[in-house]
């Protein structure tokens, strides 16, 4: 083997190790008693405990945070699907002279600094009496999900072969049933990827949730970050367990998203 190749493989193996090891170590720490975590020499062999995990699952604040996260993200993604997919289809298949401007407008929403949106929204929701409610969070997140789903779904609909849709029109389908029965199912794989991506994005969102909630509507990232603000008094194992719980849902989409990446780049090739 050439020495260059060997070095390359070593660097890659190290990078692969670095990608997963910190998270794996955190998962391992969540199974440890405090004495096994606070050691100068990291301990690989220890007596595992489920105390941290059961503590986390038993805490009301964590369960409320989980519930809030699931509802806020789930409903916002649903709104994003209902409003974003048809709009994306319309831009992809019935382009008019504003199509470019619409696409740029949707993208430019991503330029807005979250803090610039969050401060006025906090004042607005306070005035409407909706501050610290899930409604406020869902409406705010919808801006995120609609724009992201639209942005990713436009190329997905464009990739559907036009001939299929034209054949359906010849067969007497109307414009709406072509969308329902042809375009949606054919583009489904890419669309699911786009939707999963928008879910991960809002699930991971922190700043807006922090500013729009004070007690009732706290999402899981906020609850987890608060656990750490208590400093070293909180056993590290519990903190590690809360990090693992927070990280699990996005990781469930690992397969879907990597398939989505593959399909995006396969389309480019042809």
């Amino acid at each position: 083997m050439r020495p260059g190749l060997l070095i390359g493989k070593t660097v890659l193996a190290f990078a692969g190790f670095m990608a997963v090891f910190p998270l794996a170590w955190t998962a391992l720490n969540s199974l440890k008693n405090n004495v096994d975590i606070i050691t100068r020499v990291p301990r690989l062999v220890f007596t595992p405990t489920l105390a941290n995990i059961s503590y986390i699952i038993g805490r009301d604040s964590v369960m409320t945070g989980l519930y809030n996260s699931v509802i806020a993200c789930g409903v916002a993604v649903l709104i994003g699907v209902v409003l974003g997919l048809p709009a994306a289809y319309s831009v992809a298949r019935y382009p008019n002279r504003w199509a470019g401007d619409i696409q740029f407008f949707v993208l430019s929403l991503r330029f807005l600094p979250p803090v610039a949106v969050a401060i006025p929204l906090m004042v607005i929701w306070l005035q409407l009496g909706l501050y610290d409610t899930l409604t406020a969070l869902i409406v705010t997140y919808s801006l995120l999900t609609i724009s992201v789903i639209m942005w990713l779904a436009i190329p997905a609909f464009q990739a559907v072969p036009k001939e299929i849709e034209e054949a359906a029109f010849v067969d007497g389908y109307g414009a709406y049933s072509v969308f329902w029965r042809i375009a949606l199912p054919v583009a489904a794989r890419s669309l699911i990827g786009a939707v999963a991506f928008s879910f991960v994005l809002v699930w991971n969102e922190f700043l807006i949730a922090l500013m729009l909630s004070s007690s009732n509507a706290k999402t899981l990232p906020i609850v987890a970050s608060e656990l750490s603000q208590q400093g070293m008094n909180v056993p590290w194992g519990i903190l590690n367990a809360s990090v693992v719980l927070l990280s699990l849902p996005p990781l469930l989409f690992l397969g879907v998203l990597s398939g989505f990446l593959n399909s995006v780049f396969r389309q480019k090739k042809t």
Binding site: P22, L23, W25, A224, L246, S258
Partner: peptide
């Protein structure tokens, strides 16, 4: 490819904690 996608999927809060530890 699968391994390298994992870190970006993590909530930023999780990633921050993992490295803070």
């Amino acid at each position: 490819c699968l391994l390298f996608i994992i870190p970006v999927l993590l909530p930023r809060v999780s990633a921050a904690f993992v490295w803070k530890f």
